[in-house]
Design a protein around this nucleic acid. Structure first.
Length: 212
DNA sequence: CAGTCAGGTGCGAAGGGAGT
DNA sequence: ACTCCCTTCGCACCTGACTG
């Protein structure tokens, strides 16, 4: 739960933190929830949410996932577009894709889906270092979300509730996000995998922007 | 009441010293 | 040179007080 010092000292990620900040603030406003209300829903302290919304904290994947669950969205929705006036761009170039690194586990995720494209499908590329483990404790969401994990390289273990799945290169696991979820790389080599998430929240966000 | 700030806690990484 | 142990440091995260 508690953080480890990042390998390069203070690995601040100002751009991505500011993007997460505006996304959390926007999603919370969209739901008309106060800091207290969101605290009650996700279990992250009011002060921590406030820090995240100001871009002054580098939250762990576990904290972001709790926040996302409290807001009723996938984690991918927290990395969404920060420019409401941006044109619809169907092509996401490798060099433009947003990368976020979990300061706790070293887990690195790259958002592949074009950021402003109105789709419920979010595709994410993940690099999971050797020995790393990422826990998502929140379980069920409303509306229900589904995702599929396709391993490109290495081996990973996915624990959904009390079910353990060992995946190797080429394997694809489909799951409904209704139980706590753990990704682990028990090997001594980094693993790479693709996650396809079905989440209507980004569309709701774009629709809300266009109607305000 | 919503949001911010200050101070404190717990944890792992890094670094240094001692022993082999 | 290597390993073990201890201390220090930096960070996420928390509680509770404070402000408007």
């Amino acid at each position: 739960m508690k953080n480890k010092k990042s390998p390069n000292g203070s690995a601040k990620q100002p751009d991505i933190n500011l993007r997460i900040a505006s996304r959390v603030r926007e999603l919370r406003a969209l739901r008309g929830a106060s800091l207290d209300a969101l605290t009650a829903q996700c279990g992250v302290s009011k002060s921590m949410i406030s820090l995240i919304e100001r871009g002054e904290a580098s939250p762990t994947a576990a904290t972001l996932e709790k926040l996302a669950a409290g807001l009723g969205v996938s984690m991918a929705a927290l990395f969404g577009p920060d420019d409401a006036a941006a044109e619809l761009e169907p092509l996401s170039r490798r060099s433009d894709q947003l990368i976020w690194k979990d300061p706790e586990s070293g887990y690195m995720r790259r958002a592949l889906t074009p950021p402003n494209w109105p789709t419920p499908i979010q595709i994410v590329e993940v690099h999971l270092p050797a020995g790393a483990r990422v826990t998502y404790e929140s379980g069920a969401r409303k509306p229900a979300q589904e995702q599929q994990v396709w391993v490109m390289q290495g081996k990973i273990e996915v624990t959904l509730g009390d079910q353990l799945f060992s995946l190797r290169s080429g394997d694809c696991l489909a799951m409904r996000l209704d139980r706590p979820l753990v990704y682990a790389n028990p090997t001594t080599r980094a693993a790479e995998y693709i996650v396809a998430i079905c989440d209507p929240a980004p569309i709701q966000l774009i629709q809300a922007r266009t109607t305000t």
